[in-house]
C-alpha cells in the first residue's frame, strides 16, 4: 500500500520543529508500524536525506521504548498495543497518517520523534524500589502473598514505563505511571518497609519534574498498552494523603 505520512521533524532540542510530509510506497499489511517507518527511512537515506529518528528496542511490546502519537492517539488506533505491535493491517492504502512525539514539558524532544523520558527514571530513583540486603535469595515461599494482592501487584507491574499515559493526558500528568509503580510495591510484603516514604518521595519527584495533575479524564487508561486501570491513581491518592497526613499511623 501507498501512504502519506505527516511526521514531526525537529533537528535537535533547540530547533523549533515542524510537520513534514513523506510519501511511502511498498508497504504490506503484515509489516509493523516501525517496519513501515524503517521502509520510509530507507527511502530517505537512498535519496540522501536525513532519516526520521524514533525510539525502538525490543519490538515485541515489552520494553516500553517505542513512543509516538499516531493520528492523535498515543501508540495509535489499536487498544492495548504498543507502536511496535501495531501492524499496517490497521491502515488502508492511500491513508494519511500523522505521527508526532509524546508531548510533555517533562519529556523534551531530543530529535524528531525521540523524547527524553529520564524524568521517569528519576521518579523510580526517588522511591520506586525496595531495599534488600545482599546475600543468597531466600526461599520463594517464605513470604506468603494473598492471591488478591498478588493479582493487583501483577496488574500494576505490567507497566512498561512507556509514557503513553503522559502523552495522552490533556494535563500531561504522569499519575498512572507513578500509581502503577507505587501500587505494584504497596501490594507486596517486600514493599511495606518503605511504603510511606515511597509515596511521599515519588509524588514529590513527579511534581518537581513538571508533570500535570490528574483531573480524571481517564485518557491514560484508554491508551495504556498494558491496560492498567486508573483505579490505581485512586489508590495512589489514598497512599499519598495517608502518608502525608498521618505519617505515624
Amino acid at each position: 500500500m501507498k501512504l502519506t505520512l505527516h511526521v514531526w521533524r525537529q533537528a535537535g532540542p533547540q530547533d523549533r520543529g515542524r510537520m513534514e510530509m513523506l510519501q511511502v510506497d511498498g508497504i504490506t499489511s503484515d509489516m509493523s508500524f516501525l517496519e513501515m517507518l524503517d521502509k520510509a527511512n530507507e527511502d530517505l537515506i537512498h535519496d540522501g536525506k536525513e532519516p526520521v529518528a524514533f525510539d525502538h528496542d525490543c519490538r515485541e511490546g515489552i520494553c516500553g521504548t517505542c513512543s509516538m502519537v499516531i493520528d492523535g492517539v498515543a501508540h495509535g488506533p489499536q487498544e492495548g498495543t504498543t507502536t511496535c505491535q501495531l501492524h499496517m493491517r490497521a491502515f488502508k492504502d492511500g491513508d494519511s497518517i500523522h505521527i508526532e512525539p509524546f508531548r510533555s514539558r517533562a519529556f523534551p524532544v531530543i530529535k524528531d520523534l525521540v523524547v527524553d523520558r529520564g524524568s521517569f527514571d528519576r521518579i523510580i530513583a526517588a522511591g520506586g524500589y525496595v531495599s534488600v540486603n545482599t546475600g543468597s535469595a531466600q526461599d520463594a515461599n517464605n513470604l506468603p502473598v494473598r492471591k488478591k494482592d498478588a493479582d493487583m501487584a501483577m496488574d500494576a507491574a505490567a507497566c512498561i514505563g512507556c509514557g503513553a499515559c503522559v502523552a495522552s493526558c490533556p494535563n500531561g500528568s504522569a499519575m498512572l505511571f507513578v500509581a502503577a509503580k507505587m501500587g505494584h510495591l504497596a501490594h507486596l510484603p517486600q514493599g511495606q518497609a518503605e511504603r510511606k516514604e515511597r509515596a511521599l518521595s515519588m509524588v514529590a519527584q513527579m511534581d518537581a519534574e513538571g508533570f500535570g495533575a490528574c483531573s480524571n479524564h481517564y485518557e491514560c487508561e484508554a491508551v495504556c498498552p498494558k491496560e492498567i486501570p486508573a483505579t490505581f491513581i485512586g489508590s495512589m491518592n489514598r497512599e499519598f494523603l495517608k502518608s502525608s497526613l498521618c505519617p505515624d499511623s
Partner: peptide
Amino acid sequence: KLNRAARPVAYHQQKDQATT
C-alpha cells in the same frame, strides 16, 4: 496553571478516547 505548563507544545492532532 500547573496543567497548562505541563504541555507547552500542543499536538497538531489529538483524539480524545475517554474524556467527556
